[in-house]
Every structure is written in structure tokens, then in C-alpha cells.
Design a protein around this nucleic acid. Structure first.
Lengths: 139, 139, 139, 139
DNA sequence: GTGGTCTAGACCACC
DNA sequence: GTGGTCTAGACCACG
């Protein structure tokens, strides 16, 4: 459904899941009270080991974003929205800063970096449009 | 000297060293025939274990970017420049794309992403100017 | 199992492992999709440090002969066979040439060298037969 | 003059020198009473570090093959011939056996190994003839 | 359980 | 002094 994993991302798989849940909450795709997919279901969908999903859900639970409902599953908490909205930009900003710092320390001019970013951003938009035009899209 | 390690940027230390050597070659900071800092020296400077530097240098050697001169050290090969110039953009582009893809999949609008990048880029420029204005400061 | 280390043959241990994996692939003893022994297992079997095996496996991985399957182990790639078949003869030929060159430069006649080789080859055959005749014996 | 170094031989440089001196003695190229080249001279000729030659000569001296003549240099001892003649075959045989063992353990048939050796031996003869035809020859 | 990374420190060959 | 190799043992992420 809304998650997609890229194993060569630099991010650990469980971390990608954690972040994507947070992003989904921040963007309203996942609302308080909604259930997240079961561990098995998500593990199958993403073709990862169930324990990896367990790990991600455990982290989210201990951060108060998910809560266990006995015998039912995990659902998004009330507090989650505020928490995730704040965190979304921070998480992204952090990664963006890291890569920009590296680009800068490689002695690329700011303008060259900006150009690189624009190129990739444009390519991304084009891809996104293409997918939207069709139907579902995955990574 | 010209290398700096950031333990929280998601990249393995040896990989950061590898990339920084490549960037230094690409930008001309390190020219063919130049010697890279000795294993022990760099290890001390970066406060990492010598074996971590050995690992990075070995990888660079097997990529043909460095070559060992028995008993004297490692120097940058003639081929290195072409190799690194090509690779610099590819390496950076790769990381940039990954973070942009994540930002996009978090349902941020392209304009919002662009804004985030601009903010960080501006902050980066300001920091850089600041440093230049003073004297040497390091990360 | 199929690997054996000889600490006095002039080759580094990790290199002997690398070569033996390649040879096993070239000879079909190890087929694409097969898992190589785990780092810890092989280290124990050869009585070497696990890191030495790690080093060998890493080299093989970066040559595209092995690939890591997260959390399960390393397996032989599809490409490995072609790669290793070509390399087997090259690796052996290289070593053979070196020793023949030395023998020749020691002013031995070609016929004398040939004789030496034949003697050792015969002894090798006899030993091999002996082993086959019994049961398993190792070096 | 009669020595040549191959840095990619698998053998350490000092060891190549040691062996070549022994071979020269065994073949009569160097006779008891003959002086070996001075450390400086040989180091320059082979383009290696003088300390490497010192190391080789030290080993040879402690084996009783060379002896120091105060203020003159090093010369070949009386005992050297017998010693070296015996050792020549042993040294070569040892290396030959190592490579044959490896070839055999790579599951090459004896006939295939023999073929490989013959090919390289033939190539060696051809090269040697070529050189002899001309004048001096180097590695 | 698996491999990946890192630290710590040893010995060797070579300059 | 240099790099190369090996040992020993730790921690992490993933299955």
C-alpha cells in the first residue's frame, strides 16, 4: 500500500519503515485511530523479514506514535499527528543537510550543487507525473 | 588537513574517507603523484583506528586511485583524476536522489522540498563565508 | 569442507581463501546460488581469525563473485562462473610462469626444469591417488 | 649484471636477491673468491633501496655463503658451492610443488596442469632464444 | 543465527 | 618511518 523500501538507500530497512509511518501520519495518510498493517502483512508486502517490521513497530510504539490494542493490532495515537508533523521536516532537513555538507566539502560551488538538486528534482517530478498518469506506482 | 569525519552522517567512516579522497582528487586538492597522509597520521588526525584508514586506503588502491610505493607511502595515480571527476557527481547525485525521493514520498510538494534545500544551502553558504572570514576553523 | 590453508605457501591467508573460492566456482564445486560457509564457521574450520575470512569474502563480494543476502549469508552470484572460469587459468598460469622464470634464470636447462616439474607432478598424483584410495584425509 | 628483480613475483625483493645469488653460485656464474657487487652498486642497478640489499647480503653472510673482507667487500666462500648446488633444486622444487598443489586443488586434471606448464615453458624458451639472439636482456 | 564495522595491538617487509 | 597482514574481540543491524 503506502510503503516502499529501497535496500540501497543508505538507511536501514527498519528505519525506512519508521520514517515512512511518521511521514504518513504527518501527511494525514494515516490518521489517529487508524490501524497500521499487521506485521505479517507488511513484511510480506515489503518482502522483508517480519522481525524487521517488529523492530520498526516497536520503535514507533516506544515513541508513542503507535499503541497496541490487545488482540487487534497497532493503531496510530492521538498525539502522533503533532509529533510527526514536527518531526517530518526535521528528519528530512537532517538528511538534506548531510548531503549538502558533503557536496560542499567536495568543493562544488553552491550553484553547482543547486543545479544538481534541480536536475534530480525535475527528474523526480517527471517520474511522479508519469506514475500518477498511469495507476499505482511503486518504488 | 583536508579530511573530516562525521560519525552521524549515516556513512561508514571508511566510506567517508574513501569519498573525501575521491573528492579531493576530483577538485584538484590532491594531484597525481601526491602522497596521501600516512595511515598512522590520518588515523591520529581523525581519531579513528589505523585499521579503518587502512581499509579505506585499500579500497582506493584496489580501485586504482592510489598506488603503494613500497616503504614510502601511497600516492595518487595518473588515472585517478579522470576516474574521480566522473565519480564525484555520480556519488553526490546518488545521495541527493535518495533524500529527494524520500522527501517526495513523504508527500511534500516539490516546492516545499525546494524550499527546504534552499534554506539549508543558504545556511551552508553563510557558515562557509563565516569560516572563510575568520581563519581556518574545522567541523 | 573444501578449503585448506597452507601458511607456508607464500600467499596471504585471505588470498588463499579468495583463490580457493574462485577455483571452487570454476570447477563447479560451488554453483551460483550456493551459500559459502559462514564467516565464523570457515574461520573455525581453518583455525584463522574471523576477520581474515571477512576480508576474503569482502574482496570476493566487491569482485561480484559473492553477494550478501541480509542476515542469511553470502551466496555465489550468477556471473561468478564465467568470471571464475576465465580467472582460474590466469591465476594459475601467473604463478606457474613466475616459478618457471626463476628456475630458468637459475640457469637450469629447460629439460631439467621439465624433469623437476614431472617429478613433483608424479608425486602429487601418487599422493592424490593414495588419498582417494583411503577415504578423506586432508593436507 | 646477472640479477633481475620482479616486484610482482610473490617473493620479497630481498629474498629474490638471496636466491639469485645462490643460483649464481650453484651455476658457477659466481665462484668462490668472487666479489659480489657492492651494496650501493647493486641497489642502483636494481633500483631498490640499499637497505634491501644490505638485508639480503646479511642473510647470505649468516648462511655462510658470503664472507666479509674488511675494507674490500663481500666475497663468495669456499663452502658456498656445495651448499648452493644442493639448495638450488630444493628451493625451486619447493616453489614448484606449491604451485602444482594449488593447481591440483583447483581440480585441474594432471594433464591440464602439464599442458599449462608446457605452454609457459615453451613461451619461456622462445623469449630466451629471442634475447640470446640480440644481446643483453633484462627482466 | 548472519555479515558489517570498528577498535586495539601485534608482527613483517621494505625504505 | 611506511603499508600489509593477522589476531582478538566488541557492537550493530538484520533474519
Amino acid at each position: 500500500m503506502f510503503f516502499s523500501i529501497n535496500p540501497t538507500n543508505g538507511l536501514a530497512i527498519f528505519d525506512q519503515i519508521v520514517r515512512q509511518v511518521k511521514f504518513a501520519v504527518a501527511s494525514g495518510t494515516l490518521a489517529p485511530g487508524d490501524m497500521v498493517p499487521s506485521v505479517r502483512e507488511l513484511a510480506k508486502e515489503l518482502a522483508v523479514n517480519p522481525n524487521t517490521v517488529v523492530r520498526a513497530y516497536r520503535d514507533l510504539t516506544s515513541e508513542g506514535i503507535l499503541e497496541a490494542v490487545r488482540g487487534t493490532g497497532l493503531n496510530v495515537t492521538e498525539d502522533a499527528v503533532a509529533h510527526c508533523e514536527k518531526e517530518r521536516l526535521a528528519l528530512l532537513r537532517e538528511r538534506i543537510r548531510h548531503v549538502l555538507v558533503e557536496a560542499h566539502s567536495s568543493r562544488l560551488e553552491t550553484s553547482e550543487i543547486r543545479e544538481l538538486v534541480e536536475e534530480e528534482l525535475t527528474r523526480l517530478e517527471r517520474t511522479a507525473k508519469g506514475k500518477r498518469g498511469k495507476k499505482g506506482a511503486d518504488s
